[in-house]
Amino acid sequence: MEWAELIGRVAVHGDRDAFRLLFEHFAPRVKGLLMKIGTDADTAEEIAQSTLLAVWRKAAQFDPSSGGAAAWIFTIARNLRIDAARRAVRQARADQPGFIDEADDVVDSPEILMTRGEDVSRVAAALLRLSEEQSRVVRMSFIEERPHADIAESLGIPLGTVKSRIRLAMNRLRDLLDEST
């Protein structure tokens, strides 16, 4: 069954069996990804739990025509990770008067959420045409947040090549997105 369909069942019926399947698939992956990019295990567990709770709560807001369930869930986890980091900053400032002590979702507004409709098909078409090599280096650098030296080592290429490959990949992606009108 498609993940999007399970999210739909959560939204419409409050279907806990569907939710369990989503939990079993995504929670350990959110935790794994967070740990991979340097979050400690306890915080990663906590954020992964909050992420799935948010999937339940926001299921009705999921747009099946958007970028897909995994991208949506990544976005939720990402926002919770930012919130967690912000809470840490706020706590450090708790003694200072005048700071707002609640998690304002100032920037998480509808107009900057996932790309929609026509945009989505263009994005998907462009990504399909990005070579595996280019896609891989972009993901390692920007999503897994691995240092260039680390990428160089695991791909067995010189450091300078990593930098130019990332640059070329980003330019190529821009071109593909512009092209696929």
Binding site: A71, I73, V123, S135, I143
Partner: peptide
């Protein structure tokens, strides 16, 4: 959006 797709993948 493309970056988000890659993140989902």
């Amino acid at each position: 959006g493309a970056m988000e797709h890659l993140a989902g993948a």
